[in-house]
Nucleic acid binder design. Structure first.
Length: 119
RNA sequence: CAGGUUGGCCGGAUGGUCGCUCUCCUGCUGCGGCAGGGGGGAGGAAAGUCCGCUCUCCACAGGGCGCGGUGCUGGCUAACAGCCAGGCGGGGAAACCCGACGGCAGAGUGCCACAGAGAAGUGUAUUGCCCCGCGCGAGCGGGGUGAGGGUGAAACGGUGGUGUAAGAGACCACCGGCGCGGCCAGCGAUGGUCGCGGCCAGGCAAACCCCACCGGGAGCAAGGUCAAGCAGGCGCAUUGGGGCGGCCCGUCCCGCAAAAAGCGCCGGGUAGACUGCUAGAGCUUCCGAGUAAUCGGAAGUCGAGAUAGAUGACCGUCCUCGACAGAAAGCGGCUUAUAAGGCCGACCUGGAUA
RNA sequence: GCCGCAGUAGCUCAAUCGGCAGAGCGAUACUCUUGUAAAGUAUAGGUUAUGGGUUCAAUUCCCAUCUGCGGCU
């Protein structure tokens, strides 16, 4: 996940909390808000309630990898924030990936990809 | 061979594809970057933040009081509450392990609940022992005494004798303990030995305190440069305001009456970029000094630098099947957490054999 | 990352200079009532966060650990 695709400004996070659309499933929160740019920006929130630094790093890396694989299929011009909850700790990558796909389908931000029949 | 003590090392290995971050080279560029290739990319504890420093700012970091820390001795170190060596005390048959280990006898103050006669003062007397007086007698009154019983976590030396009405360091011998002095060994803590003394002195300083030594405060979110942005107000001449963050002295800065500037307080604005930022008390090997910690020298070597915060995903192979755990300025320690096990030493005890 | 504070009964808090850990609310049982509430009486409830140390004796003093909370850009 390159730096220009990261969501970094705390005011953007605050705007997301106020105006964003939020979906939740299985210990994962997905918030979406249009950003007016020609690309997407992503933010990952892994708070201290998840555990120690190793646990938080692990969760964030899984989320980032899952989002990286899903990125070409998504609509552009969105700010997307993923918030991890306690129940996500210890889940394998396949579970996290499937959870994220389901959330994106529920939010209807996945573009129609021909020839891709996953899930 | 069996049992035990102790020190150190290892903290999964390897290959492919797709990604992340830093850096170098080449090319392109609309100077924001992009493409290709090469290289580096978490730990022994990175952790807790318990100590010590480097560094940065507070003008310099000065004296006294206060406050805090350390506490056997010598050494090592940039420094330490760390390490090494030694002493003393305790545990163990031994190897060895543990110890905040200055001073209640250098002075003063305080506390020692309950129980007990008495908890530290030249103090006390329930039972007991002894003497005197009274009474036919059981006993009662007065006095002496502190050994025994009893209480307690702790009770004012122990044994034997002299002495006495009964006794008691009241006196004597030995022992234990304490203090002083001499000599010997040691840099020293201390140990050994000889003599003298008073008869014996309770415990607690992780109780106040005393003594010796050390410590100015804050912390990389320190600090510096640039950009963007906002709104100003109040105080500052006589023994004024402030640095000084506990106080005082001393010292320094500003002001000393036009304005400006400066300093301080309150309020408002910003949360971006660069820097600090990683070559250092560095690491490896060898040689030398030292019992050791460590130090000196030579040669070689460069091993993270993010900033919503880089190590991940998938597929294989092998093994003894993988724990605790993730850098945020950098070091030296301490403490705590740690799977399956493996490897290399040193030493003690017992047995067997030579 | 750095700095600081706290932990006692189910909850909110006490406990002098170290000397048998208490109060209010709550809980349980009983009385009162036709019944409930209120009121009254009684009872239980604690490894003082955890583990060591000093002391005759520790909630208190010291050290380490765990948990929670706050501040600094």
């Amino acid at each position: 996940m390159q730096r220009r695709f990261r969501l970094r400004d705390s005011r953007d996070f605050a705007r997301m909390r106020r105006e964003g659309r939020t979906l939740a499933r299985g210990g994962l929160l997905l918030s979406i808000l249009p950003n007016g740019l020609d690309h997407n920006r992503y933010g990952f929130v892994t708070g201290k309630a998840l555990g120690k630094a190793v646990v938080r790093n692990r969760v964030r890396r899984l989320l980032r990898e899952a989002m990286r694989q899903l990125h070409p299929q998504l609509q552009t011009g969105l700010d997307i924030v993923l918030v991890a909850r306690q129940s996500l700790v210890g889940k394998p990558f396949s579970t996290v990936r499937r959870l994220l796909e389901d959330l994106c389908d529920q939010a209807q931000i996945r573009q129609e990809v021909k020839g891709a029949d996953e899930g």
